[in-house]
Deep mutational scan, measured.
Amino acid sequence: MADYSSLTVVQLKDLLTKRNLSVGGLKNELVQRLIKDDEESKGESEVSP
């Protein structure tokens, strides 16, 4: 898992935009949104054959 907390808000928003996720909120919220997306993506890849 990436260390999103070391990134700037601009970098976080860029990552969120690329994933089609909301870019609104405080830095901590942006980090949590990326972590949640990582976990959901990981779960999907494990279920797929």
Rank of each mutant, 00 (worst) to 15 (best):
L15V: 06
D3P: 09
Y4Q: 00
Y4W: 01
K18F: 06
R19V: 00
E40V: 11
V23Y: 03
N28H: 13
N28K: 09
S41Y: 15
G24F: 14
S22G: 10
I35M: 10
V10M: 15
S6Y: 07
E39Q: 06
D38W: 02
N28R: 11
S41N: 14
V9Y: 08
D3S: 09
L21H: 03
S45M: 12
K13Q: 10
K27P: 09
L26C: 15
K18A: 12
K42H: 09
E46W: 07
E44F: 10
L26A: 11
K18M: 12
R33W: 00
K18H: 08
M1G: 05
L7Q: 07
K18Y: 04
L16D: 01
Q32C: 12
M1K: 14
R33E: 02
E40G: 15
L16G: 02
S48D: 11
K42C: 06
D14R: 09
V10L: 11
S5A: 10
M1A: 07
K13P: 00
E29H: 06
K18E: 11
E44V: 11
E46K: 10
E39D: 09
S6N: 05
V47G: 13
R33Q: 00
L7G: 02
D37Q: 06
S6A: 04
N28G: 12
L34A: 03
D14G: 11
Q11K: 08
L12F: 00
Q11S: 05
K13H: 06
D14S: 09
L34Q: 02
T8W: 00
L15R: 05
D38A: 02
S6Q: 14
S22K: 06
R33V: 01
D38E: 04
K13A: 04
R33N: 00
K36C: 08
V31W: 05
S45V: 10
Q32I: 00
R33P: 00
M1W: 02
G43W: 07
S45N: 05
D14T: 11
R19I: 00
I35Q: 11
K42R: 14
V23W: 08
V31Y: 00
D37L: 03
G43D: 13
S45R: 12
L21F: 02
L7Y: 07
E40A: 13
V47D: 15
Y4N: 01
E40P: 13
Q11L: 03
S45F: 05
E39P: 03
M1E: 02
K13R: 10
V10N: 06
K42T: 06
D14M: 12
K27R: 11
S41Q: 09
S6C: 15
S48V: 12
M1R: 05
Q32F: 00
V31C: 08
T8G: 05
E29R: 02
L30A: 02
S41R: 12
D38K: 03
L16T: 01
Q11C: 04
V10T: 13
D37G: 06
E44H: 05
D3G: 11
V47K: 13
K13L: 05
K18P: 01
V31N: 01
T17Q: 11
L7K: 07
S41W: 06
G24D: 15
I35N: 08
D3Y: 14
G25N: 04
V9E: 13
D3T: 07
L7V: 01
T8H: 05
L12S: 02
E40Q: 07
L34Y: 01
E40Y: 08
D38G: 03
E46D: 05
N20R: 11
L30N: 02
E39G: 12
D3K: 14
A2S: 15
V10S: 14
L15K: 09
V31L: 07
G43N: 13
V47Y: 13
G24H: 13
G25S: 01
T17E: 14
E29G: 03
N20D: 11
V23M: 09
N20I: 03
E44I: 12
G24K: 10
L21G: 03
E44N: 14
S5Y: 08
L12R: 04
T8P: 08
L16H: 00
Q32E: 07
S41C: 12
L16V: 04
V31E: 08
S41D: 09
K13F: 03
S5C: 10
G24Y: 15
S22T: 04
K42P: 07
V10R: 14
T17P: 00
Y4G: 00
K27F: 01
S45Q: 11
T17L: 13
L26D: 14
E29F: 00
E39M: 14
I35K: 13
T8E: 01
G43R: 14
L15T: 05
E40R: 13
T17A: 14
K27I: 01
K42V: 09
L21C: 06
D3F: 11
S22W: 07
K18D: 11
A2R: 13
L26H: 15
S48E: 15
S48L: 09
G24L: 14
E29V: 07
Q32R: 11
L7E: 04
S5G: 09
V31S: 04
R19K: 04
K18S: 10
K27N: 01
R19Q: 04
L30C: 03
L34R: 02
G43P: 10
A2E: 15
V9H: 09
E46A: 12
N28S: 15
L16E: 02
G25Q: 02
